[in-house]
Protein backbone atom coordinates (compact mmCIF):
# COMPACT_ATOMS: atom_id res chain seq x y z
CA UNK A 1 0.00 0.00 0.00
CA UNK A 2 2.73 2.43 1.08
CA UNK A 3 4.67 1.50 -2.01
CA UNK A 4 1.76 2.18 -4.35
CA UNK A 5 1.14 5.52 -2.64
CA UNK A 6 4.79 6.42 -3.05
CA UNK A 7 4.53 5.32 -6.67
CA UNK A 8 1.53 7.53 -7.18
CA UNK A 9 3.41 10.62 -6.01
CA UNK A 10 6.70 9.74 -7.67
CA UNK A 11 7.62 12.16 -10.40
CA UNK A 12 4.45 14.19 -9.99
CA UNK A 13 5.58 17.41 -8.27
CA UNK A 14 2.17 19.07 -8.69
CA UNK A 15 0.42 16.22 -6.93
CA UNK A 16 3.03 16.31 -4.17
CA UNK A 17 2.50 20.02 -3.68
CA UNK A 18 -1.27 19.60 -3.78
CA UNK A 19 -1.27 16.89 -1.11
CA UNK A 20 1.05 18.97 1.04
CA UNK A 21 -1.06 22.11 0.86
CA UNK A 22 -4.57 20.58 0.76
CA UNK A 23 -4.83 20.55 4.57
CA UNK A 24 -3.72 24.09 5.40
CA UNK A 25 -5.36 25.69 2.37
CA UNK A 26 -8.58 23.77 3.01
CA UNK A 27 -8.54 24.97 6.60
CA UNK A 28 -7.89 28.55 5.52
CA UNK A 29 -10.69 28.58 2.97
CA UNK A 30 -13.35 26.62 4.86
CA UNK A 31 -12.54 27.41 8.48
CA UNK A 32 -11.34 30.96 8.21
CA UNK A 33 -12.65 32.57 5.04
CA UNK A 34 -15.77 30.40 5.32
CA UNK A 35 -16.64 31.78 8.72
CA UNK A 36 -16.03 35.30 7.46
CA UNK A 37 -18.41 34.58 4.60
CA UNK A 38 -21.06 33.31 7.01
CA UNK A 39 -20.61 36.49 9.02
CA UNK A 40 -21.11 38.63 5.94
CA UNK A 41 -24.24 36.76 4.93
CA UNK A 42 -25.68 36.93 8.44
CA UNK A 43 -25.18 40.69 8.60
CA UNK A 44 -28.02 41.12 6.10
CA UNK A 45 -30.54 39.16 8.17
CA UNK A 46 -32.92 40.56 10.77
CA UNK A 47 -34.97 39.62 13.84
CA UNK A 48 -38.66 38.78 14.16
CA UNK A 49 -40.57 41.06 16.53
CA UNK A 50 -42.11 38.80 19.17
CA UNK A 51 -39.89 35.77 18.68
CA UNK A 52 -36.66 37.80 18.55
CA UNK A 53 -35.43 34.97 16.36
CA UNK A 54 -33.23 35.39 13.31
CA UNK A 55 -35.14 35.68 10.05
CA UNK A 56 -33.23 34.92 6.90
CA UNK A 57 -34.53 37.73 4.77
CA UNK A 58 -32.03 40.07 3.17
CA UNK A 59 -32.13 43.75 4.02
CA UNK A 60 -29.72 46.62 4.60
CA UNK A 61 -31.43 47.69 7.85
CA UNK A 62 -28.51 46.72 10.06
CA UNK A 63 -26.05 48.81 8.10
CA UNK A 64 -28.52 51.68 7.95
CA UNK A 65 -28.83 51.60 11.73
CA UNK A 66 -25.04 51.61 12.03
CA UNK A 67 -24.79 54.72 9.88
CA UNK A 68 -27.82 56.59 11.21
CA UNK A 69 -27.23 56.16 14.90
CA UNK A 70 -24.54 58.42 16.35
CA UNK A 71 -23.73 56.05 19.15
CA UNK A 72 -22.07 53.54 16.83
CA UNK A 73 -19.90 56.20 15.24
CA UNK A 74 -18.80 57.31 18.72
CA UNK A 75 -18.01 53.73 19.69
CA UNK A 76 -16.08 53.09 16.46
CA UNK A 77 -14.05 56.27 16.85
CA UNK A 78 -13.36 55.49 20.50
CA UNK A 79 -12.16 51.99 19.63
CA UNK A 80 -9.97 53.12 16.72
CA UNK A 81 -8.60 55.97 18.84
CA UNK A 82 -7.61 53.69 21.70
CA UNK A 83 -6.14 51.15 19.27
CA UNK A 84 -4.02 53.87 17.64
CA UNK A 85 -2.93 55.23 21.01
CA UNK A 86 -1.98 51.75 22.25
CA UNK A 87 0.01 51.17 19.05
CA UNK A 88 1.95 54.41 19.41
CA UNK A 89 2.57 53.79 23.11
CA UNK A 90 3.83 50.27 22.47
CA UNK A 91 6.08 51.47 19.64
CA UNK A 92 7.62 54.14 21.87
CA UNK A 93 8.19 51.63 24.68
CA UNK A 94 9.42 48.85 22.41
CA UNK A 95 11.95 50.77 20.31
CA UNK A 96 14.58 51.54 22.98
CA UNK A 97 14.14 48.15 24.62
CA UNK A 98 14.40 46.26 21.35
CA UNK A 99 17.45 48.32 20.37
CA UNK A 100 19.16 47.49 23.64
CA UNK A 101 18.31 43.80 23.22
CA UNK A 102 19.51 43.63 19.63
CA UNK A 103 22.55 45.90 19.58
CA UNK A 104 23.86 46.53 23.09
CA UNK A 105 23.16 43.49 25.26
CA UNK A 106 25.40 40.47 24.73
CA UNK A 107 25.24 36.80 25.66
CA UNK A 108 23.44 36.06 28.91
CA UNK A 109 21.85 39.48 29.30
CA UNK A 110 20.40 39.24 25.83
CA UNK A 111 18.95 35.79 26.48
CA UNK A 112 17.47 36.91 29.78
CA UNK A 113 15.87 39.95 28.17
CA UNK A 114 14.28 37.86 25.43
CA UNK A 115 12.90 35.50 28.08
CA UNK A 116 11.66 38.44 30.15
CA UNK A 117 9.79 39.88 27.17
CA UNK A 118 8.26 36.52 26.28
CA UNK A 119 7.48 35.56 29.87
CA UNK A 120 4.12 37.37 30.11
CA UNK A 121 2.95 35.37 27.09
CA UNK A 122 3.29 32.18 29.12
CA UNK A 123 0.50 33.14 31.48
CA UNK A 124 -3.10 33.22 30.39
CA UNK A 125 -4.58 36.38 28.98
CA UNK A 126 -7.41 36.17 31.52
CA UNK A 127 -5.02 35.94 34.45
CA UNK A 128 -3.30 39.13 33.32
CA UNK A 129 -6.58 40.94 32.78
CA UNK A 130 -7.96 39.97 36.18
CA UNK A 131 -4.65 40.99 37.75
CA UNK A 132 -5.12 44.44 36.18
CA UNK A 133 -8.71 44.57 37.37
CA UNK A 134 -7.42 44.04 40.90
CA UNK A 135 -4.57 46.53 40.47
CA UNK A 136 -6.92 49.23 39.18
CA UNK A 137 -9.78 48.55 41.59
CA UNK A 138 -10.86 51.06 44.20
CA UNK A 139 -9.12 49.23 47.05
CA UNK A 140 -6.30 48.02 44.80
CA UNK A 141 -2.55 48.55 45.15
CA UNK A 142 -2.41 51.42 42.67
CA UNK A 143 -4.84 53.55 44.65
CA UNK A 144 -3.13 52.49 47.83
CA UNK A 145 0.02 54.14 46.50
CA UNK A 146 -1.62 57.09 44.77
CA UNK A 147 -4.34 58.11 47.24
CA UNK A 148 -1.97 59.43 49.95
CA UNK A 149 -0.55 61.94 47.44
CA UNK A 150 -4.02 63.01 46.34
CA UNK A 151 -4.22 61.07 43.09
CA UNK A 152 -6.30 58.13 42.00
CA UNK A 153 -5.70 55.41 39.45
CA UNK A 154 -6.98 55.59 35.88
CA UNK A 155 -10.46 54.47 34.95
CA UNK A 156 -12.54 54.37 31.77
CA UNK A 157 -10.60 54.92 28.55
CA UNK A 158 -7.33 55.55 30.37
CA UNK A 159 -7.57 52.19 32.12
CA UNK A 160 -8.28 50.46 28.82
CA UNK A 161 -5.30 52.19 27.22
CA UNK A 162 -3.02 51.14 30.06
CA UNK A 163 -4.12 47.50 30.13
CA UNK A 164 -4.11 47.07 26.35
CA UNK A 165 -0.67 48.69 26.05
CA UNK A 166 0.65 46.25 28.65
CA UNK A 167 -0.95 43.14 27.22
CA UNK A 168 0.09 43.65 23.60
CA UNK A 169 3.59 45.08 24.25
CA UNK A 170 5.46 41.81 23.51
CA UNK A 171 3.81 41.67 20.09
CA UNK A 172 5.49 44.98 19.28
CA UNK A 173 8.89 44.23 20.85
CA UNK A 174 9.47 40.93 19.06
CA UNK A 175 9.09 42.16 15.44
CA UNK A 176 11.18 45.29 16.13
CA UNK A 177 13.84 43.19 17.83
CA UNK A 178 13.91 40.85 14.86
CA UNK A 179 14.08 43.82 12.49
CA UNK A 180 17.02 45.38 14.38
CA UNK A 181 18.82 42.02 14.55
CA UNK A 182 18.84 41.94 10.77
CA UNK A 183 20.71 45.26 10.51
CA UNK A 184 24.42 44.33 10.26
CA UNK A 185 26.57 46.03 12.90
CA UNK A 186 28.96 46.97 10.11
CA UNK A 187 26.42 49.46 8.78
CA UNK A 188 26.39 51.28 12.09
CA UNK A 189 30.19 51.22 12.26
CA UNK A 190 30.45 52.51 8.72
CA UNK A 191 28.12 55.36 9.51
CA UNK A 192 30.20 56.24 12.55
CA UNK A 193 33.49 55.94 10.67
CA UNK A 194 32.21 58.30 8.03
CA UNK A 195 31.70 60.85 10.76
CA UNK A 196 27.95 60.71 11.18
CA UNK A 197 26.48 61.99 14.42
CA UNK A 198 24.77 59.12 16.35
CA UNK A 199 21.45 60.87 15.76
CA UNK A 200 22.11 60.93 12.03
CA UNK A 201 22.85 57.20 12.15
CA UNK A 202 19.52 56.60 13.83
CA UNK A 203 17.68 58.79 11.36
CA UNK A 204 19.37 57.77 8.11
CA UNK A 205 20.40 54.16 8.74
CA UNK A 206 18.42 52.51 11.52
CA UNK A 207 15.03 54.14 11.11
CA UNK A 208 14.50 53.32 7.40
CA UNK A 209 15.56 49.72 8.01
CA UNK A 210 13.49 49.15 11.14
CA UNK A 211 10.40 51.02 10.01
CA UNK A 212 8.78 48.03 8.22
CA UNK A 213 9.25 46.02 11.43
CA UNK A 214 7.44 48.70 13.44
CA UNK A 215 4.58 48.65 10.96
CA UNK A 216 4.47 44.86 11.20
CA UNK A 217 4.32 45.05 14.99
CA UNK A 218 1.67 47.74 14.83
CA UNK A 219 -0.58 45.38 12.88
CA UNK A 220 -0.64 43.12 15.93
CA UNK A 221 -1.18 45.80 18.55
CA UNK A 222 -3.74 47.66 16.47
CA UNK A 223 -5.83 44.68 15.40
CA UNK A 224 -5.71 42.98 18.79
CA UNK A 225 -6.87 46.13 20.56
CA UNK A 226 -9.52 46.70 17.92
CA UNK A 227 -11.10 43.33 18.56
CA UNK A 228 -10.75 42.98 22.32
CA UNK A 229 -13.91 42.67 24.37
CA UNK A 230 -12.99 40.84 27.56
CA UNK A 231 -10.29 43.07 28.99
CA UNK A 232 -12.08 46.28 28.07
CA UNK A 233 -15.30 45.17 29.74
CA UNK A 234 -13.44 44.15 32.90
CA UNK A 235 -11.60 47.41 33.45
CA UNK A 236 -14.07 49.95 32.03
CA UNK A 237 -17.78 50.49 31.60
CA UNK A 238 -17.25 52.16 28.22
CA UNK A 239 -18.42 50.38 25.12
CA UNK A 240 -16.08 49.34 22.35
CA UNK A 241 -16.70 47.59 19.04
CA UNK A 242 -15.90 44.25 20.64
CA UNK A 243 -18.22 44.70 23.62
CA UNK A 244 -21.13 45.85 21.45
CA UNK A 245 -20.66 42.89 19.12
CA UNK A 246 -20.52 40.58 22.12
CA UNK A 247 -23.64 42.09 23.71
CA UNK A 248 -25.58 41.90 20.46
CA UNK A 249 -24.37 38.41 19.76
CA UNK A 250 -26.97 37.16 22.22
CA UNK A 251 -29.74 39.69 21.56
CA UNK A 252 -29.38 40.43 17.86
CA UNK A 253 -26.85 38.24 16.01
CA UNK A 254 -27.40 39.82 12.56
CA UNK A 255 -26.65 43.27 13.94
CA UNK A 256 -23.57 41.89 15.72
CA UNK A 257 -22.44 40.49 12.37
CA UNK A 258 -23.00 43.84 10.68
CA UNK A 259 -21.00 45.70 13.31
CA UNK A 260 -18.24 43.09 13.09
CA UNK A 261 -17.81 44.04 9.44
CA UNK A 262 -16.62 47.49 10.59
CA UNK A 263 -13.32 46.34 12.16
CA UNK A 264 -12.75 44.04 9.18
CA UNK A 265 -13.00 47.02 6.83
CA UNK A 266 -10.76 49.09 9.11
CA UNK A 267 -8.16 46.32 9.15
CA UNK A 268 -8.25 45.93 5.38
CA UNK A 269 -7.54 49.64 5.03
CA UNK A 270 -4.82 49.38 7.67
CA UNK A 271 -3.18 46.44 5.91
CA UNK A 272 -3.24 48.23 2.57
CA UNK A 273 -1.49 51.19 4.15
CA UNK A 274 0.98 48.86 5.88
CA UNK A 275 1.76 47.24 2.55
CA UNK A 276 2.42 50.65 1.08
CA UNK A 277 4.82 51.34 3.93
CA UNK A 278 6.69 48.12 3.16
CA UNK A 279 5.70 46.01 6.16
CA UNK A 280 5.53 42.81 4.13
CA UNK A 281 8.72 43.14 2.12
CA UNK A 282 11.11 41.23 4.39
CA UNK A 283 8.75 38.87 6.13
Amino acid sequence: MGRTLAGLFHGRPRLQLGALLAGPVGWLVVGYLGSLAVLLVASFWSLGETTQAVQQTYSLDNFKELLDNDVYRTITLRTVGIAALVTVTDALLALPLAFFMAKVARGRTKGLLVVAVLMPLWSSYLVKVYAWRTILSEDGPLNWVLNPIGLSGPSGNAAVWLVMAYIWLPYMIIPIYAGLERIPDSLLSASEDLGAHPWTTVKRVIWPLVFPAIVAGSIFTFSLTLGDFIAVSLVSKNQFIGTVVYANFTTNPPFAAAFAVVPIVIMIIYLLIARRLGAFEHV
Binding site: V71, I75, K237, Q239, N248
Partner: peptide, 15 residues
Amino acid sequence: KTYDDWVQGWTEVKG
Protein backbone atom coordinates in the same frame (compact mmCIF):
# COMPACT_ATOMS: atom_id res chain seq x y z
CA LYS B 1 -41.37 50.25 21.96
CA THR B 2 -40.39 46.69 21.12
CA TYR B 3 -37.53 44.73 22.61
CA ASP B 4 -35.46 45.65 19.54
CA ASP B 5 -35.83 49.31 20.50
CA TRP B 6 -34.92 48.48 24.08
CA VAL B 7 -31.73 46.79 22.93
CA GLN B 8 -30.75 49.78 20.78
CA GLY B 9 -31.75 52.14 23.59
CA TRP B 10 -29.53 50.30 26.01
CA THR B 11 -26.52 50.66 23.68
CA GLU B 12 -27.22 54.39 23.48
CA VAL B 13 -27.41 54.65 27.26
CA LYS B 14 -23.96 53.17 27.63
CA GLY B 15 -22.71 55.45 24.83
